[in-house]
């Protein structure tokens, strides 16, 4: 038996909205430590890794490890039926072919349940090594969203370079060129408005803007986003989801011929 209850149901709604265009389907792996998902997009260019800790839920029970095959478009349809203030409970029997979602309004006067048909999905897990990155940048998630949105209107790829001067995003296209540089800035009083640049060594990598732009659909989940860069490795774009866990997007760089 699997059962997970979260008072702040809107978090689940936002998570699925952030993922559903990138990955159409994937397995929710549940165990007594929590719920996780690792899924690649259809072209295997990027990977989503979601980790929700057992103690981040208001109630969590998982008697047997299970892989629940989810079609995210269908899960999104069901979660759209939940109110933003609703408590959401996920439930499944062992080896079930459906996941039950129960929505409770805060006033307790409206309770609904939906069953989502589960799929059987063959998924290949990739081992992601713990890594020291050359540059780690924490910035407001709204700032990240603005940068990738603005640059997407100019070009297809972005060169991200981190130096002691700051982190620079450069692109070019038919219109012309664009450069946006952010500097380390801890002046704003609110920590979520600050920009932290932790540079071990200068690094520069090129990425497809379409994917970086897609990752910013996770903006409503967290006030800050962390970008991690190392030469010849995928960039990590990470959103901390409060005390519940995190969603990480990995994007393979462009490689010179």
């Amino acid at each position: 038996m699997f059962e997970a209850r979260i008072t702040q149901g809107s978090v689940l709604k936002k998570l699925v909205e952030a993922l559903k265009e990138l990955v159409t389907e994937g397995n929710f792996d549940v165990s007594n430590t929590g719920l996780s998902l690792q899924a690649m997009d259809s072209s295997h260019v990027c990977l989503v890794s979601l980790t929700l800790r057992e103690d981040g839920f208001d109630h969590f029970r998982c008697d047997r490890n299970m892989a629940m095959g989810i079609h995210f478009g269908n899960l999104s349809k069901i979660l759209k039926c939940a109110g933003n203030e609703d408590t959401i409970t996920l439930k499944a029997e062992d080896n079930a072919d459906q996941l039950t979602l129960m929505f409770e309004a805060p006033s307790q006067d409206r309770i609904s349940d939906f069953d989502l048909k589960l799929m059987s999905i063959e998924s290949e897990h990739l081992g992601i090594p713990d890594q020291d990155y050359s540059a780690e940048v924490k910035l407001p998630s709204s700032e990240y969203q603005r940068i990738v949105r603005d640059l997407t209107s100019i070009g297809d790829t972005v060169l991200i370079s981190a130096t002691k001067e700051g982190i620079k995003f450069s692109t070019s296209g038919d219109v012309g060129t664009a450069n946006i540089t952010l500097r380390h800035n801890t002046t704003p009083e609110k920590p979520e408005e600050q920009t932290f640049i932790d540079l071990k060594e200068p690094v520069a990598l090129t990425f497809a803007l379409r994917y970086l732009n897609n990752f910013s659909k996770a903006t409503p989940l967290a006030p800050q986003v962390k970008l991690s860069l190392t030469k010849d490795l995928p960039i990590v774009v990470e959103y901390q989801v409060g005390e519940l866990g995190s969603v990480r997007f990995y994007l393979a760089p462009k490689i010179d011929d």
Binding site: V45, G127, Y250, K254, I255
Partner: peptide, 14 residues
């Protein structure tokens, strides 16, 4: 022109 790398090239299957 740069080619798009794939995730499988960077991380190995478990």
């Amino acid at each position: 022109k740069a080619n798009q790398g794939r995730m499988d090239t960077f991380f190995t299957a478990l």
